Simulated scan of single mutants.
Amino acid sequence: MGLPPPTADALSCSSALCLRLAAEIGAAGGWVGFDRFMDLALYTPGLGYYAGGSHKFGAAGDFVTAPELGPAFAQTLAAQAAQLLALSAPRMVEVGAGSGQLAGDLLRELELRGQLPDSYGILELSGELQARQRQTIAARVPHLLARVHWLERLPEYFDGLVLANEVLDAMPVHLVVWTTTGAAERGVSTVDGQFVWVDRPASGRLLERAQALAAEYALPAGYLSEISLTVGAWVAEWAAILGRGALLLIDYGFPRREYYHWQRATGTLMCHYRQHAHVEPFYLPGLQDITAHVDFTAVVESGCAAGLELLGYSTQSNFLFNCGLSDVLARTPATDASRYLPLASSVNKLVSPAEMGELFKVIALGKGITEPLLGFARGDRSATL
């Protein structure tokens, strides 16, 4: 594929994970669903992509997230965070905090606004990322590090704001192929030491979901896409934990009617390695990210069924402008070219339809929040769900 070669150490780690994956497939009778393969490739302790030691975020990693573009994202997001903290409780939990850049910049901005949370929890599976997050936050806001703590598991009860930026897309998904005879689950087997695709008839909850989708959207034979049962379960789990507060989720994806459009016949699965995007999930397991777009209709269905209320849904562009992105940009004089031009470039990536502005969505689900949220004041697309 012409991708950059890994180092010898990285290749050794990937080879070890491949042996672990092959052993798992063998123990399961020679086949596992893709959701299990994806889970192991990303989260196997010490070897999986998010559980190992590779550099993942930013220009030197495999992909760039919104917080890595500069502080404007967090500075703008802080307006919505401050409102939700005031409406619930002065506590935050960030799920999957990446490099820690969002946490550091968000805490700094909330302090400037006089609206710091009493505590900022980070739920992070990777010990390597925990260490990096601590280092980043200590460098940006050393006097606020004492407010930050790392969680080993979800809390039993929580009031406040739960924030997840680009977390849902990395949750394991099932692959489904709709055929003339029904729905098949695409899984993984091995032949001569190589991972290969093998389809089996879908069953259980996956079959029920696949049949419902086929009936609603008349999916043609050969149509391939993803179904995430994990995302819905995750949202429902937080719904059981949340007392008064909100989930604020930012990710790329579509409403269901767009997700399963007949023209999107090969799904949304994508891999990221050293700033290259491709569609080969068997390439160097453990060294590349594996993602799928989010079905935001499924997010809402799961949340509302578990007792949450939809508080807003919009594009990232609309959300950021509603939260005062223009004011954040105006803090830097346009005459100061050395500072303004890089800032304007990063802001363009955040809001441009050709970059992150339209593909990325923001959705809020909550309990006990009665005031309209400022991030969805204009351009709310909840009706599309």
Rank of each mutant, 00 (worst) to 15 (best):
L106W: 10
S88W: 09
L350E: 01
S54W: 08
E258G: 07
A139F: 09
L374F: 02
G253W: 03
A16I: 04
R209T: 10
F37H: 14
S88D: 09
G30Y: 04
Y157H: 15
A10G: 06
P201L: 05
D251R: 07
G267V: 02
T181N: 08
A183M: 10
A337K: 05
L365I: 00
P142L: 00
F37A: 10
L249W: 05
S99K: 12
S317P: 03
K361L: 00
R91F: 02
G70D: 05
A215R: 15
M1F: 08
L77Q: 11
A16C: 09
F282D: 03
F158M: 11
G2W: 07
T65D: 09
L87N: 05
A164M: 12
E185K: 06
G379F: 06
P353I: 13
I227H: 10
Q75H: 15
E128A: 11
F34W: 10
D199V: 02
M1H: 07
L343H: 06
H174R: 14
T44S: 14
R108C: 05
G193D: 06
A97Q: 05
L242Q: 12
E258D: 13
R132P: 00
A305N: 14
A8E: 13
C13G: 10
C271Q: 09
F63L: 01
Y283H: 14
G121R: 11
V235F: 08
Y340N: 07
L248A: 09
G193N: 04
L247A: 02
A59R: 14
M92A: 12
L385F: 02
P71K: 14
G307Y: 11
G286M: 02
V148P: 04
V173G: 06
M356A: 04
F296R: 09
T332N: 04
T230E: 13
Q135A: 15
A236D: 05
A383K: 11
P201K: 03
V351I: 15
D39Q: 15
D105G: 07
A72N: 13
L248D: 10
L125H: 14
P281L: 12
R257A: 15
S14N: 09
Q101S: 14
F376G: 01
D159W: 02
E237V: 00
E355M: 11
A74K: 03
M270V: 08
D62P: 10
L107I: 11
Y313W: 07
G46N: 11
G33D: 09
P342D: 12
E301N: 09
R257K: 14
S345E: 14
G286W: 00
A81C: 04
P67S: 12
E24P: 00
A383N: 01
E355P: 00
V294S: 11
F57N: 13
D35H: 15
A305D: 11
R256Q: 15
M92C: 13
G53A: 15
A81E: 04
L21C: 01
L129C: 01
E216V: 00
D336Y: 05
L284R: 12
I137E: 03
T335I: 01
F57A: 11
L144H: 01
L42S: 03
Q115S: 15
M1K: 05
L21F: 03
I369E: 13
S225R: 04
R339P: 02
L219D: 07
G46D: 12
S338C: 10
G61M: 08
Q101P: 00
A221C: 06
T266V: 03
D336G: 00
H278G: 08
Y223H: 15
A74G: 02
Y259N: 06
R200N: 06
